[in-house]
Amino acid sequence: MRALRRNGFRINPVWVLLPVVAYYAAFWIRPTFRVIQESFTDKAGQLTLGNYIRLLSEPEIRSAFMNTIIFTLGSALVQFVLAFALALWLNKKFKFSNLVLFIALIPMAFPPAAVGILWKTGLYRFGWINSFLSSVGLMDAANPVDWMSFRNLKAAMFLIIVDTWTVLPSVMIILLAGLQNFNKEYEEAGWVFGANKFQTLKDIVFPILRPTIVTAMILRIIAAIQVWLIAVMIFGYNVVPLLVERIAYNIDVITFGEFARKDAYTLSVIVVAIVVISVSFYLRFSGGKADDGGAA
């Protein structure tokens, strides 16, 4: 019998990792590799860029690009500003701050399908949005807005509003966690040494919270690039084309179309590439050294 090693294992502990490695090889590396392979081959299995060329010349894909970019930039910006304001407010610990926090977190609990239905009921001519607007006198009841007829930019803007409603709490909670760990004395030192509230926020709070902000924003940007379900739940397929919406469309709706599978694979690769590129750009341009904030 072999003697036990000093650490009590009979075998080299590296082998304990084997199941994980096998799992990743079977369920992650292999499919990923296959998708990439599919996107660069034609139906006969010949190496080609044809899939990319075909996709990029389709007008729907181009508008899907545009819509995704607008949606990502718009939602990231709006959500960051609102979430930070909300987090700063809730961090003040006023009388009912815990209750407000609880209420603010509710939208996070809705699944996208429920969010879709909730907002969709508001979009009809006689939906709740119009009744609300006319009840506060912002809209003429005799001449209701047909929100469902919104297309392109307008529809993308509307999606930003709905998406913000849903995901704001998740951004806010990350920023709030950062603020709660933030040493108040950094801020107070700013005030004492001559900075006004805005300068303190800009020169001291933001830079020190940078790692937290970066985390929150990267998660948001990735999710925004991949948005599709809300758009489909509210407007249906093909109304507001988005990159991932196109993937779902190819797989779900025109499943047996000539290039449906190839298009879906190729788009998946494109989306992954865009995510990777945008995150690395964001990391570069958010500047500074990420490891300074956590110290001290």
């Binding site: 004395e185 950094y186 030192a189 700013g190 005030w191 040494f193 830079p207 940078r210 110290a295 001290a296």
Partner: peptide
């Protein structure tokens, strides 16, 4: 007055030397 209008300086318990 607001702190910045008082012309004071302060040394904090945690020093509050800005880490960035």
């Amino acid at each position: 007055l607001a702190p910045r209008e008082r012309n004071i300086s302060m040394i904090f318990q945690s020093y509050a030397v800005w880490p960035h």
